[in-house]
Nucleic acid binder design. Structure first.
Lengths: 238, 238
DNA sequence: TCAGCATGTGGACAACGTACACATTAGCGG
DNA sequence: CCGCTAATGTGTACGTTGTCCACATGCTGA
């Protein structure tokens, strides 16, 4: 800087958005900037220099909080997975609200036995897992790409930082829905082991093809149809 | 260089592997180098500097043949898709060879009607599409990643550069197998439209989860089991 | 033979990730 | 209240990458 020896009466004036030398919570700020970058350009757009620039800090400051660019990306990834979990949870709530919503007996709806209701709820819950996942992927392709970029592995898949409001990660929401399906007798228990991977494969694959695969630029109606059909395929084929 | 004005009696001596000023077929050489790079480190590892370095040429030479790094990557992508197609074709041949192989009537095998044989062939062919795809993904994760990196779109999906020995791209092999399934009556024709995307989603998603998703580091037996189950899920759920 | 075009070279620039040394501050024991 | 120390941010610098520009070279057809 021009004058290093002067104590500076005016606050350091480094950049708008910060008046103290210390930032306060740089780590969180960098993650948020990284999430924004991911939203705009996917995981590849999450860079140390650009993130620090947006926060108004020197590039090297980031290295006090993240060893690597990859460490930053991993933190961003966790934040994005958390958002996926939240999207899935709200989708579940919306789906189940239809059931309990307009009084117990809706007009012209045949009365359901208790077992039937529970089975229906489990199925709706399971479908919501898949459709919530896909809706998020379509609404926020950049965040979705960052959430499942090759930095996350199974060990950290249950990390609390990746959970939604109910404290469960996307993967845990899926396994819970499948367990429910078994509990109410919709899914035979002998087909349960590994089912999460089959379901996840189908939904994740469709997301990949829709976002930057050969299916981008499909019109929304066809997309919506495909989403429903994939989930149905999983239900029938599990 | 040290002496630019001397015509150089010794051949330019730029680097081992080339003795003429002109390379001869630089474009192809760069693509091959790029494929090798992709094999080692996936699509992200395909760089113009490293590719030209391996070919023994100046970085800028690449720009006479590719406008961009992305253009190079796209060419590499086509080459990789072609290999995927070949893997699928050989898988199909292997699967069908079991049928016609050891004479018409194998021991202790009940005689099949003509329609039954044709249906069986179509199903084997369809399954081979999926298993070939997945086997390639597991055997060559880097090439697989490059083959379906976000540079390829539907328009170029039928390009001849991406075809296998029978002249069909991976996508075309899949649609052909599905058409066959309909022709022999295994798949009801009303479920045919869009089926390629459902099938592709499931298989592609599993590949993604296996390669750099949360399923890497799964032991080979479980992988093999998942591969079979996914294809079965598709068959049943279509 | 020679002009023109395709192809490869050399040098340069901006951006990136990141290592090193230094400056500044917060929070502590005295 | 003072000063020490650890935490945090700054400055400078290096190597690498993609890419632009001007120039050199060699093939090819008039």
């Amino acid at each position: 800087m021009a004058v290093t020896t002067i104590p500076a009466e005016i606050p350091p004036a480094t950049s708008p958005g910060r008046d103290t030398y210390r930032h306060g919570d740089l780590r969180r700020a960098l993650i948020e900037a990284g999430v924004e970058l991911a939203r705009e350009g996917g995981p590849a757009a999450v860079g140390v220099r650009e993130a620090t620039r947006r926060v108004g800090v020197t590039p090297n400051a980031a290295y006090r909080h993240f060893v690597d660019r990859l460490a930053l990306l991993d933190a961003v990834c966790s934040a994005c997975q958390s958002r996926v979990a939240i999207a899935m949870e709200t989708e579940q709530e919306a789906a189940l609200a239809v059931l309990g919503g307009p009084a117990a007996g809706s007009p012209a709806a045949p009365a359901l036995t208790d077992a039937e209701t529970r089975a229906l709820r489990a199925r709706l819950r399971f479908r919501a897992v898949g459709t919530g996942y896909l809706r998020f992927a379509l609404a926020e392709p950049g965040l979705f790409g960052a959430a499942f970029s090759p930095s996350s592995d199974l060990e950290s898949a249950t990390s609390a930082a990746r959970a939604g409001t109910t404290g469960r990660t996307p993967f845990e929401l899926l396994t819970a829905a499948l367990d429910d399906l078994v509990a109410v007798g919709v899914l035979p228990s002998e087909r349960r082991p590994g089912a999460e991977f089959l379901a996840w494969s189908a939904v994740h694959g469709l997301a990949a093809l829709l976002i930057d695969g050969p299916l981008r630029a499909l019109d929304p109606d066809q997309v919506q149809s495909l989403v429903g059909r994939v989930v149905t395929m999983v239900e029938q084929g599990l």
